[in-house]
Write a protein that binds this DNA or RNA. Structure first.
Length: 241
DNA sequence: CGGCGCACCTGAGTGC
DNA sequence: TGCACTCAGGTGCGCC
């Protein structure tokens, strides 16, 4: 994101709303422009007094009219900052929206929708759940946990799943996301929530990160494999294809 | 178009 | 003590 465009587009404008779509944070300005953040793995947004010392890996500081600074800090630089200037914001947001999948907490997250999306696909269900063009917001930890809770093997091809199985995936996914949000998220390495505090859902994880530990369902050893380039944990006894 | 592999990045952890 | 290496993950790109 060129700093010049950032300046020209948002400097002097009033923030009127903050929304979320997929894993992106949308900060809306009164003139219609939108500042878009993705926190990646390690990104953090925080409010600081102007005089607060700059931290390592601070990438952007925005001075607000209350003399506080909104600061974006990201150790691993997997995050992103984008601006949709006012004169193109509506079109850019439409393009952005159409490139993102179903919101788990939205009205389209139904067994019928997922069955339709899966009909002509043969990818493993875990890859499907994590594909943000199909479903937004489910990362590796919650994909692993959802499939364990639903007793479905991560390698199961999506076109072989019944509507009943999709409903089970939906129910488990919503339960897990709700519990995880209530616990403040999962702090595996260095994640911090919006409050600046760590999350505690990792204490309730059943399989993620538990290679060779006993399955909470049957006591068998948890397997770890790589699927789609990502660590995949499951119980081969409790989760069937 | 679908599916897959990989690059991006840095700090923590491990082994010698 | 220090070095080399591996691993973690969301997203987008490029290839078949």
């Amino acid at each position: 994101m060129p700093r010049k465009l950032l300046h020209e587009s948002i400097q002097g404008h009033r923030i009127t709303a903050i929304d979320r779509r997929a894993k992106y944070l949308l900060i809306r300005m009164q003139d219609g422009s939108v500042l878009v953040f993705h926190l990646g793995m390690t990104g953090k947004l925080g409010m600081f007094p102007m005089a607060a010392p700059k931290a390592p890996h601070d990438h952007l500081r925005l001075l607000l009219d209350n003399e506080m600074e909104l600061r974006f800090n990201d150790v691993r630089r997997f995050g992103s900052i984008t601006v949709w200037p006012a004169d193109h914001a509506i079109i850019q947001e439409e393009e952005f929206n159409s490139s993102k999948g179903i919101e788990p907490f939205g009205p389209e997250f139904t067994a019928a929708s997922l069955t339709r999306l899966a009909r002509r696909r043969s990818m493993p269900v875990k890859t499907f759940l994590m594909n943000s063009r199909l479903i937004a917001g489910i990362g590796n930890i919650y994909a692993n946990e959802t499939l364990f809770a639903a007793s479905i093997h991560p390698q199961t091809r999506v076109n072989l799943l019944s509507e009943k199985q999709w409903q089970k995936i939906i129910d488990c996914c919503l339960r897990i996301l709700t519990l995880a949000i209530a616990a403040g998220g999962s702090t595996i390495s260095d994640f911090l929530g919006a409050s600046g505090n760590p999350g505690y859902f990792q204490l309730q994880l059943a399989v993620y990160g538990k290679k060779d530990e006993p399955c909470p369902g049957c006591g068998a050893k948890i397997n770890k494999e790589t699927l789609g380039g990502r660590a995949t944990y499951y119980c081969s006894n409790c989760q069937s294809i």
